[in-house]
Design a protein around this nucleic acid. Structure first.
Lengths: 229, 229
DNA sequence: TCAATAGTGTCTGTAAGACAATATACC
DNA sequence: GGTATATTGTCTTACAGACACTATTGA
């Protein structure tokens, strides 16, 4: 395809997006991988990704959402945020390339069945620089766990305080005092009781909670708004 | 330039880098702007930036450093970090474009004389989405000020604790207890006394400090290492 | 000795961790 | 009542802010 833009004297790099979709199963963070259909690295497991379609995508975030929709049949119910842009002449055998990496966080139940689930901390050797991208995503999620309610997106919309507590502990890999945790969640208004709803078991039922409107808003207050439609 | 890559079926966007160079003058954060030489928006003040040169740049970070070197004659002594990647069909009149934005932090004394200095919080109307980029950079710097020693890069290599304290206050726009500040800096080993060095004045001289090796390392421990050469 | 800034010590309130105590369900 | 988990209360400790105090220089 010839280039008709007069000022555009420099070759553009290959431009793609890659998505690190994370969920929590048992004690371990898991990443979604797909077997590549096309060259290069056809047949190998890699992060879901694809070219930015300039005639179709509104921006790279839309491209990431399109990848999740087309390749994993995921249309909603996830948290999505830009992670980092990786670039250079060697990361892709096709030549100088640039990938805008996104990471998404989702509940285990909503994890797409079409994807291979691999433990994020032992994901095996991946093509391109996908190992670096996964590492960056896990690092980001763990960092945000220490000061935000991001880990709540690893749960369904309604959850008990114990579940939330457990998620934080597993993501951070350390124990947290349950009483302090409760105080923090309630005093800071991070989550709020979902009226009257109770989950039953063989023992005392627990109050169900959902993220407060204020908290949800914080995740839209990021520099570039994150849609969650 | 025809495209010889067989798998490359999709038009690549225009790919550029933009740099938000920040320093502190008086009580206000300042941004470096340059008058654009080329179309579009020739003659207007805008962020320093340019095309990614795939035959020359090792990655977008190198491209950002090249921009600082070629356009602002800055070769070292700054902190540089990737900020966010902005993209879309409307941000550049030439068409669908993608800009990997970086921000750099530097001492007032090292601010390049060739650049126009504009107050970051009232920078005027800039072309492209450069207002959004500046806003994101300032937001990032302020955020990092609350939990890291990034604001120290707004000072020269050696500084007094009072200067550091003052920088934090100006960046955060709030007062901080000086005694607590000292405790924190010393107990957490953020900065350390530079042996025997004293800056004199008309009163008791102050101990000079520099960032500790540990702190400097933290800024290299970012996902993609930040060189400071 | 004074002025001016540098640096330290002490008190206090807040919040988190440890952990005991109580509550509420099903059997 | 027994068992299991949910939730609350209390004690203690760590730390940040407030603020008073001491230190060190030049004039």
């Amino acid at each position: 395809m010839p280039d008709h833009r007069p000022e555009h004297r420099f070759a553009s790099p290959i431009t793609t997006v890659d998505v690190v979709l994370l969920c929590l199963r048992g004690d371990f963070l898991q990443v979604a991988l797909l077997r590549r259909a096309a060259q290069p690295f056809a047949g190998e497991l890699a992060l879901p990704g694809g070219y930015v379609h300039v005639h179709e995508d509104f921006d790279t975030q839309s491209a990431a959402k399109r990848v999740l929709r087309e390749k994993l049949h995921l249309t909603s119910g996830y948290f999505l945020e830009q992670l980092y842009t990786f670039s250079g002449p060697t990361r892709d055998p096709r030549g100088w390339s640039l990938s805008v990496a996104y990471y998404a966080v989702i509940g285990e139940k909503q994890f797409p069945g079409t994807a291979t689930m691999a433990p994020a901390d032992a994901v095996g050797r991946l093509p391109f620089d996908h190992n670096k991208i996964v590492e960056a995503a896990v690092y980001r999620l763990r960092s945000k766990a220490t000061y935000s309610s991001l880990p709540a997106f690893l749960l369904p919309e309604l959850f008990t305080l114990r579940e939330l507590h457990s998620v934080y502990q597993r993501v951070l890999g350390q124990t947290l005092d349950l009483a302090s945790f409760r105080r923090k969640i309630e005093e800071q208004g991070i989550a709020e009781p979902a009226a009257g709803k109770i989950r039953s078991g063989p023992n005392r039922p627990a109050q169900l909670y959902r993220l407060s409107a204020r908290t949800l808003q914080q995740f839209n207050r990021v520099i570039v708004p994150m849609d969650q439609d």
